[in-house]
Amino acid sequence: MGQGGEEVVSVINVHALDYHDETSYGFLRRVPSSLKVVLTVAVAICIAVLNSFSAQVFLLAYSIFLVAISRIPLKTLLKRLIALDGFVLMIWLTLPFFSEDGMRMAALITIRVHAAVLAFMALLQTTSMPELLQALNQLHIPRKLIVLLHFTYRYVHVLGEEALKIQHGMILRGFAPSLNLSTFRTYGNLIGMLLIRSIMRSQRVYDAMLLRGFDGSFPFSTRQAKLSRPDVVRIVMLFASLMGCLVV
């Protein structure tokens, strides 16, 4: 892409599609993925259901603890939170002015949003997609849904790169977006092209599956590391301490 190209076109960022960094996540990486999924859902439900301030503060503290032990780089964390805080700002700019209860609600929402996002990041960003698929399989999520999740994520990468190539082609031929009909036509063509390529690719992938004897079953290999005893104790404590939100 030429100089300044990036600021001219709001390009699709393909690199944002990888959420998981394999290098160094401590203890949470060793927790079996299915347990992490269960814990994520449990935390999300607690955050949604409990209405007292103290419970929400407890959950926020719990989430911060999770993030602290997840060893997610601070930079990644801040980037995510800043994106989130645009929404929180909007809540503060509207709610307190239109309702008596608004201030309290805005505060509660702020706590909830942060707790939910931090817990989610700590637990699922330490889980790679293959592990996640395997976990969902162990938790008896419908097979078709898991296969759908897998194929969508797998080919988002491929199609993202194709979209990038088409965009580069557009820029090289002098496309500069602005708010007019020809820009919309160009985007329409880009999307139409992407959809057509996706359907052609889906035919080729399906052929490739048939060639390897696809008969409707789709294996997810299970790779389970053995847990050490201290880790088992840690996991039990992790689950037990979540119960704290029910008593505070």
């Binding site: 969508t152 080919y155 979209a163 959809l195 359907i199 889906s202 992938v205």
Partner: peptide
């Protein structure tokens, strides 16, 4: 399902 997933990926990217 694979085919729906791939078209759905195209919509996601779009």
């Amino acid at each position: 399902v694979p085919r729906v997933g791939i078209v759905s990926a195209a919509l996601f990217v779009s």
